[in-house]
């Protein structure tokens, strides 16, 4: 039995297969609408994340399956001190597959060690969030038609942004990919991420503090939020925050077919005036998230359609 804890649990071939299935579901959803009839997905959310939970539930419902679960630890046995291991052992008897979110890093891995059914990590603290990365990959593939040879710009908080690290990890496995790392000095990509996934693989990259300067080169612009609490003082934050806010003016020099991505929720890092631009793809990204989760559920439940 297979679980999805870390994006690296999946080979490039398996990711390609998931994307192929997700594309097929988008093209012919009717074919899949009873694929998981009488199967149940349990969403065990030990901390709230409404969008991720709804995406999973909508995916399972789209496959004709059922959903049950809890949406924060106040309404769950966790509050009474029940361990992850015990919760999962019990839920294994009620469902066929589990999507689990937990504030503690490694909780889904503990779950996988005690579960009789597949576990999907739906986010464990600041650690992994593989279905976000799969969503990003499907978005890129669906919008650009390929992974190879793309120039990927990552902008904002590259230091703490786990979605950025996972995306670099996943994209570094494809030929001819180039990274453009755009952030203030304070929020640069950590050395070990750069070393392991960029330098050691001989991948081309550029580091810049200016979004405008590198904009014309990008095929993809992945925005993240620059949070106030990441800065030592208010002046630095105020001085820097506007440089990393995407506006229609900054988009002027971008390629016609560039796409703007964002893991959502956004606060102010993308001006709402950008939303109408055809290159803005962050709401479509959320839509793709449902289909890649459908493909993932089918794979882990070993359902053939």
């Amino acid at each position: 039995m297979k679980h999805l804890i870390d994006i690296l649990d999946l080979s490039v071939e398996e990711i390609d297969e998931l994307i192929r299935v997700a594309d097929d579901i988008i093209a012919s959803p009717v074919k899949y609408r009873e694929a998981c009839k009488y199967k149940t997905l349990a969403t065990l959310f030990f901390e709230p994340s409404t969008r991720t939970r709804l995406s999973f539930e909508s995916a399972m419902l789209g496959l004709g399956g059922n959903v049950l679960g809890f949406s924060d630890s106040n309404s769950s046995s966790a509050k009474k001190g029940e361990s992850v291991a015990d919760t999962v052992a019990v839920v294994s008897g009620y469902a066929d597959i589990i999507a689990m979110r937990h504030p503690k890093e490694g909780a889904p891995m503990v779950a996988s060690m005690h579960s009789l059914i597949p576990i999907i990590n739906a986010g464990d603290g600041g650690h992994f969030h593989p279905t976000q990365t799969l969503t990003d990959l499907l978005t890129i593939h669906h919008e650009k038609g390929r992974f190879e040879g793309l120039t990927v710009g990552l902008c904002g908080d590259l230091k703490f942004g786990r979605t950025v690290h996972s995306l670099i990890e996943a994209m570094s496995r494809y030929q001819g990919v180039k990274f453009v790392l755009i952030s203030p000095e304070e929020l640069k990509l950590p050395g070990f991420v750069k070393q392991t996934y960029i330098k050691e693989k001989g991948i081309e990259y550029v580091q810049s503090t200016s979004l405008e300067e590198v904009m014309p080169e990008l095929d993809i612009l992945y925005m993240t939020r620059v949070q106030r609490e990441r800065f030592f003082n208010e002046e630095d934050y105020l001085r820097l925050k506007d440089s990393y806010i995407l506006t229609p003016e900054k988009l002027k020099n971008a390629k016609e077919d560039m796409i703007v991505m964002h893991p959502l929720p956004r606060v102010n890092e993308i001006d709402t005036r950008v939303d109408g631009d055809p290159r803005a793809c962050y709401f479509r990204q959320a839509y793709y998230g449902k289909f890649i989760r459908m493909a993932l559920i089918l794979k882990l439940l070993e359902v053939q359609v």
Binding site: V84, K104, A107
Partner: peptide, 13 residues
């Protein structure tokens, strides 16, 4: 030593 690690709260791990 990571305070956010599941080993800090999970019993019998």
């Amino acid at each position: 030593k990571n305070p956010r690690c599941i080993t800090t709260t999970e019993q019998g791990i």
